[in-house]
Amino acid sequence: MKSSHQVKTLQDKQWNRSNEPIWWSLFGAGGVVVALILPAVILITGILIPLGLVDPHFMSYVRMQGFASHWLGGLIVFAVIVLPTWHAAHRIYHLSHDLMLKPHQLYFILCYGLAFVITIAAGTLLLVV
């Protein structure tokens, strides 16, 4: 345990601006998608369609391709894939801090790097469909 006696006063301390707002904003946006949209996506694609409770034609390849190639549909698909990825990356990175896994930079690059790769991949694939 570090002794607080080591710090005399914080008056002259230099407080440096953190870049965390970038990651936190993506985390927050991802949280909204995970909480509100992902359950509906799972219900439709994971339960209703496989069980035949909804006409499979609604999610046929042609219809889905049409949806994803429209700019608005593409944007929605992009957001639903990418934002939860940043959400998860942020959570796992902070979990690595909680578990005292070191070095921090390695986990930073692994977590946010993977989210970045998925973002580029999703964006590229959506542009070519």
């Binding site: 345990m1 607080s4 006696h5 710090v7 914080l10 008056q11 301390k13």
Partner: peptide
């Protein structure tokens, strides 16, 4: 999370410094 001064007395001066800041 605070150093112990004696028995059940913890030294919360670190918190007081943060409070001043």
């Amino acid at each position: 999370n605070f150093p112990i001064e004696k028995d059940l007395v913890s030294d919360i001066s670190d918190f007081i410094k943060k409070l001043e800041a």
